[in-house]
Design a protein around this nucleic acid. Structure first.
Lengths: 150, 150
DNA sequence: TATTGTTATACTCTATAACTATA
DNA sequence: TATAGTTATAGAGTATAACAATA
């Protein structure tokens, strides 16, 4: 028998059976990073999803809600209140493309928000990527893109 | 200028600004794997968190709810209804350790459930790990443990 | 017929606060 | 004083269904 504290000594739980489970550690790492990003972006009153949307619109004005939803894997029904909130706060505006679609673009204030959010996100990313060996972030991201496909 | 479809041709949204963001791809990959695991475990009427709890109890009988919550990063308040559901369904039983703590263990039926769940989880893991080069899963898991720390 | 956008709704997961009982 | 467990509650994120307007 290996040395082991008595049962009544509050033994730390053994994660052994989970050690090789990619999905488990993926979920844990994602939860930690998302919590940190959420706390960091709170200083500019944006949630992670909102910041991501503003970044994509800023990079590609004219996008529609449906296109945004598809690339971010957000259902149309959930995009509506998200976009309504961003418009109500004056970060974006819409212009008719045709009777159905509306082209999205940033307002001047929205552009400022993106600049602020991008700096916060980059600092957040640097904090976490620096936990890894220098050549790992790129390799891990490539693996994550494989795992997240379809 | 690079070749590019006209704006009115429903151009796919450009994820360029997100390409280097570890947190973004982590979230996406985690969502895809969790959705697949949830669908796979539905055949034995377990959710991913429930299966994980049963696995840990089976590996280490005598664990308490608090210990489980700490290792899985689940708040005590959220452990209560989880454990109540597992006990109501007859997968676990509790025995008093002292006036506060209760030692958890699997019932015979719970043990059967773990065996079924473990097979499903292993198949799920194999499906996703086989998307990666042979030496990558281990490296990625190590990186995820670094990212998920604290 | 298919797509865009909206509303309503429900379910899960997570977070906080307050409480009892016990160590 | 600190910990174990419970209850209640609220906030996000996500899912489906239904609908109107338009292509």
């Amino acid at each position: 028998m290996t040395a082991r504290p008595a049962l009544d000594a509050a033994a730390p739980a053994d994660t052994g059976p989970l050690d090789g489970l990619l999905g488990y550690w993926l979920r844990r790492a994602s939860a930690v990073m998302m919590a940190d990003l959420g706390a960091s972006l709170a200083s500019v009153e944006l949630r992670p999803t909102e910041a991501t949307i503003l970044i994509l619109i800023g990079n590609q004005p004219g996008l529609t809600q449906s296109e945004l939803g598809r690339v971010l894997a957000i259902a149309r029904a959930n995009m509506a209140p998200l976009m309504a909130g961003l418009m109500k706060r004056g970060f974006i505006h819409k212009s008719r493309v045709d009777g159905r679609s509306q082209a999205l673009a940033l307002t001047a204030w929205g552009h400022d928000k993106v600049t602020q959010a991008r700096a916060i996100i980059d600092a957040h990313e640097h904090r976490f990527q620096s936990r890894l060996a220098a050549d790992m972030p790129e390799k891990v991201i490539e693996a994550l893109k494989q795992l997240g496909a379809s």
